[in-house]
């Protein structure tokens, strides 16, 4: 119950020797939180999510999901939305639903169908005929229709129109589960701010510059998270 959903201990990762993207990154997240991972381009946000999702392997350090060391088994607990859609362009939306139903025991097909209908996305069309934003919506619908313990959403609202953005944020709120945690990266801080419990400001090499409760920040600093971000990361 009180085991952290996610525990990262002294993670190190570099793509080029001597240029660490993450340097001794540690983090612990409890259940029932919506957490914003915020930082400038290239600070290691996506790398961190990929390490947690198991797409990349850390050079050193440890990741635990719900108390278990990261493994193929713990992947079942994670629902990951990558930066870019990864589906075969020739696949139809309905085939993706089949795919997810087969692959994930926690996939709620009814929920996915309802969301696709709400967003006006037909199921019999091929992915390659959809616009970039619509592809992203399809992917988000699939990811949010699982009943996972940890959701990792890499820029879920970046590529979609403002109306869909509202719908997606409402979906995240409507999907709220006190047992699950959602970690979101985005640059659209103003949009996401009221939705967050906690935030992390990540600087270069994955250094955590500031962290806390998104609402308390306003009380402490008298300014929004967006304004604080601009101040902390002023170029």
């Amino acid at each position: 119950m009180n085991t952290p959903v996610l525990m990262c201990d002294k993670l190190c990762k570099s793509y080029t020797a001597g240029l660490p993207v993450l340097n001794n990154f540690s983090l612990s997240l409890t259940r029932g939180k919506i957490v914003g991972l915020l930082g400038p381009n290239g600070c290691g946000k996506s790398t961190l999510l990929k390490l947690i999702a198991g797409i990349l392997v850390a050079d050193s350090g440890e990741i635990k999901i719900c108390g278990h060391p990261r493994s193929e088994q713990t992947n079942a607990l994670i629902s990951y939305l990558p930066e870019r859609p990864y589906f075969q362009p020739s696949m139809r939306v309905v085939e993706l639903l089949d795919y997810f139903s087969d692959f994930y025991a926690d996939f709620d097909r009814e929920r996915a169908t309802r969301m696709l209908t709400d967003l006006g996305i037909p199921q019999d069309v091929r992915m390659k005929t959809l616009s970039k934003g619509t592809k992203e919506k399809v992917q988000l619908v699939l990811v949010m229709s699982r009943r996972a313990s940890l959701y990792l959403l890499d820029e879920p609202i970046g590529g979609v129109d403002p109306a869909a953005r509202d719908y997606i944020l409402q979906t995240i709120i409507g999907n709220y589960d006190p047992q699950a945690t959602v970690m979101i990266t985005t640059h659209l801080i103003t949009d996401i701010e009221p939705v967050l419990d906690d935030f992390l400001f990540m600087g270069h090499s994955g250094q955590i510059l500031l962290a806390g409760n998104a609402d308390e920040v306003r009380a402490q600093h008298g300014k929004s998270l967006n304004e604080l971000f601009r101040e902390v990361f002023r170029c």
Binding site: I34, D166, Q170, I173, D197
Partner: peptide, 8 residues
């Protein structure tokens, strides 16, 4: 949900 804010 109605206000689009975090439940907590």
């Amino acid at each position: 949900y109605e206000a689009s804010v975090n439940p907590n």
